[in-house]
Amino acid sequence: MIHRFERRTGPLMVVLCLTLLLSACERPEIHRDRFIAFGTLVELNIYTSDRELVARATESVRSDLEYMHQTWHAWEPGPMSRTNELLSTGLPFSADPSVLPLILEAQRFYKTSEGLFNPALGALFALWGFQTDDPQGPPPTPEQIRAILEQAPSMADIEIDGIRMRSHNPAVQLDLGAYAKGYGIQQAMAHLRDLGVEHAILNAGGDLLAIGRPGNRSWRIGVRAPDGQGVLAAIRIQGEEAVFTSGDYERYYRHEGERYHHILDPRTGYPARGTRAVTVIHHHAATADVASTALFIAGPEHWPAVAARLGIDKVMLVDEAGVIHLTPAMEKRVTFEGTPTRRITSLP
């Protein structure tokens, strides 16, 4: 009798134990945290069931981004500002290892962007008042702008031999603001992967890099409208992809009724005209960062040629009239909230 009872209840007990065991396991979910680092708002989304991993990863991102912010800051004391001091002497010096890889890659991007990305123009950014946390103007005079452009500081003026570096142009002052965030996100994400994070989005100041996917779906990304009124479009991404936008609404000031934004055209010395925002998708965050700036400056007429040179095939540009220019590859990835005027442009 007892034996028959055990035979009947045995499988039941196994099911009960399994149920209890499974209920003890946490289901993976998206853990979100928002904090201020790198001088901006940072959002970290991690899809996992491991809460301890989330805590370690968040701390890792915080400390990584704070270190990078301090190290690469263009106008606060640190390795980058020290590098600028040494570059202005024209004498050779041993480059700080914390900034050398950035400068080398920035030189490469300067060439491929045909000079539209020119972080050697730090003096111009300072002249416009954008090397402060709260830019207020007034804008510089045409004579002041001309004085800097006549000296033509560029990344090509920097000679690098191993760790030795010198500038052949005393006007070279580095400001890697259009690129350091992309490079930094890439580094911080690599660190997260080393910790064991497989599915995450790291968003710093609106620009983001994603890895993996949350369960059985893609990551859902909203692209904010340039006028600040809600979301312009939705993009689905999965695997390692970065989404970067450069917009005229990010950093700007008004002076005597005129609005001056921070994306300066190195050819004219003035804020670039014709474009409101450029969004780029690319697997490499630093490339996406540089490309969004360079394509913004290239403008609605010339961006396809520059995109082709930079190897970017997913581009969305919103021009001053609100017309949306898209590459065919980007069109496949975007869903618009309304029905804006669209123009599909193939790359040369």
Binding site: R34, I36, L41
Partner: peptide, 26 residues
Amino acid sequence: DMAVSLPNRVIIEVLGDEWAFDSVNY
């Protein structure tokens, strides 16, 4: 939805069960 004051290092965000987007690009 959120509002941020970078100079004052303050984040105000509202929370709920479901978000329209995992992250917002701007």
